[in-house]
Amino acid sequence: MSTACLCIHGYTGSPKELEPLVEILKERTSWEISTPTLPGHGETLDLRGHYYQEWIAAVELALLDLQKRHETVLIIGFSMGGMIASYLAAKHQVSRLVLLSAALKYISFSQIVKDTLGMATDAYKGTLASNAIFSRYQKKIKHTYFFSNIEFMKCIEFTKPYLMKVSCPTLIIQGELDGIVPSKAANFLEKEISSSDKEVVFLPQSKHLVCHDEDQDIVFDKVLQFVGDL
């Protein structure tokens, strides 16, 4: 029985957000792994004129394509991609669902304050350029079309009702220091998802990009354990 994995990145992101995990899966499995780039996304953002329906349709087509060739398909979704992954898992036959920093709730103001103070301190010291958070997000902020943020919110609101229809085994992983998605979002996900087989893992040293952060080995191990019998 052949297996495939669909990996969905987040808003304003690219497949690189999931790249470390994808590389581990390529090393440890013989699966076909699909990492589509959402319309308007990628290393160079061009979001103007793109709508959330396109983002969902693009990955749904990728899922249907995988299902033509494989009996078993699992989905891994990061941030907004996690909410789209939940929608697809509710609508189609999916064997496993992995949600990384899924954006059911978004913007953790308490963590943003801490991150902002850290950037302000580095700016005062003249070391802002070496601040990892500043370096990672300054380009995105400059090149994100304002009205695309509304499409992001529409995407979350559209996919949210489908959580209660997710019945496949689900793994939820959330960084406790996430400044984009509040850590309590993982608890809301666990409550809303109807599957009787679900697990929540909190990462004490991780922010939003859990595949690239301090606890990435925990992410890899948990995901491999979760999909080990496929």
Rank of each mutant, 00 (worst) to 15 (best):
S2D: 13
S2P: 02
C5Y: 00
C5G: 02
H9P: 04
T12M: 13
S14A: 15
P15R: 01
E17M: 05
E17N: 03
L18I: 07
R28L: 04
E32Y: 06
E32F: 06
T35E: 06
T37G: 03
L38N: 14
P39N: 14
P39Y: 11
G42T: 03
G42H: 09
T44Y: 00
L47S: 09
R48Y: 09
R48F: 10
R48H: 13
G49C: 09
Y52F: 15
Q53N: 14
E54F: 06
E54V: 07
I56Q: 01
A57Y: 05
A58Y: 02
A58L: 00
V59L: 12
L61W: 03
L63W: 03
D65E: 15
L66W: 02
K68C: 07
H70A: 00
I75P: 10
I76Q: 03
I76H: 05
F78Y: 13
F78L: 05
F78G: 07
L88C: 12
H92P: 04
S95P: 04
R96V: 03
L97P: 01
V98T: 06
L100I: 09
L100F: 10
L104P: 01
Y106K: 08
S108P: 01
I112W: 06
I112G: 03
I112Y: 07
V113N: 12
L117D: 04
A120Q: 12
A120S: 04
D122P: 00
Y124W: 11
G126K: 05
T127E: 13
T127Y: 05
T127S: 14
L128R: 02
A129R: 12
A129N: 15
A132S: 13
A132Y: 00
A132F: 00
R136C: 01
Q138P: 00
K139A: 09
I141D: 09
I141Y: 13
T144D: 04
Y145F: 14
F146Q: 10
F146K: 08
F146A: 11
F146I: 14
F146P: 15
F152T: 05
M153Y: 11
C155K: 00
C155N: 12
I156H: 06
I156E: 09
F158I: 03
K160T: 15
P161W: 08
M164I: 02
T170C: 10
L171W: 04
I172Q: 01
I173T: 02
Q174G: 14
G175W: 04
E176V: 08
L177C: 09
G179Q: 12
V181H: 07
P182G: 13
P182K: 12
S183E: 12
K184M: 08
K184L: 11
A185H: 05
N187D: 14
L189H: 11
L189M: 15
E190C: 14
E190Y: 04
E190H: 11
S194F: 00
S194R: 01
D197R: 07
K198T: 07
K198W: 05
F202C: 07
L203K: 11
L203T: 11
Q205C: 03
Q205G: 06
S206G: 08
H208Q: 10
L209Q: 12
L209A: 12
V210A: 05
H212G: 01
D215C: 08
Q216C: 12
Q216A: 13
D217N: 14
V219A: 13
F220P: 01
V223E: 01
L224T: 04
Q225W: 06
Q225F: 13
Q225V: 07
F226K: 01
V227A: 07
V227W: 03
L230W: 09
